[in-house]
């Protein structure tokens, strides 16, 4: 696999994406997603996996762990639902911010929508030309409640 260097033409192409909403997609949350994520991170919190204990809490049942919002299920830029107009470049996540407004329960159908809100060009000392792409993703449940908003910065170089 050949890795290409980012050029100013690439950055111009990325900038054409700014403001464009991605095609929304739906994810049906289910318990097995929650416990597999919990098992992977080594998290035994009953809220994500033990219905009997979770029922006795303020949530009245199992809810999604933070890892569910953090996962690629909910990240269209990372999971390929947003196709960038450039290929073969390296990218990495620089930062993420999640606002959790309401819990996600098993059976909820989450609509994931994203848009790139800014592309900033930077010149790295060692890494050369870089593009800092800021995006916003909203997660809305089947009742129209915006359950979470994510802001992320992905760096392309």
């Amino acid at each position: 696999m050949e890795i290409l260097k980012l050029t100013s033409e690439d950055i111009a192409k990325l900038k054409t994406m700014v403001g464009r909403e991605s095609e929304p997609y739906k994810v049906e949350a289910d318990k097995s997603m929650f416990w597999q994520l919990a098992e992977a991170i080594g998290d035994t919190n009953p809220l994500w996996q033990d219905e009997i204990t979770a029922k006795k809490t303020q949530y009245k049942g199992i809810i999604a762990p933070p890892a569910f919002y953090i996962s690629f299920w909910m990240n269209p830029l990372a999971n390929g639902k947003i196709i960038l107009p450039i290929t073969g470049r390296r990218g990495f996540d620089a930062e993420h911010e999640w606002k959790f407004n309401a819990p996600i329960h098993p059976g909820d159908v989450i609509t994931v929508k994203s848009k790139i809100i800014n592309v900033l060009e930077k010149q790295g000392k060692k890494s050369g030309l870089m593009a800092f792409c800021t995006y916003e993703t909203t997660l809305t449940n089947q009742h129209g409640v915006k359950v979470a908003v994510e802001l992320g910065i992905q760096v392309m170089l």
Binding site: I41, A54, P66, I70, S71, F72, D93, H96, E97, F100
Partner: peptide, 30 residues
Amino acid sequence: HGALKASWLGQLITDWIGTNGILKELKCRY
């Protein structure tokens, strides 16, 4: 994975606050 470390930071908080607290916002810089 950066996202795995972010999830551990989520777990750090949810383990600590128990089931009565609510995690409202999480920010991570890799």
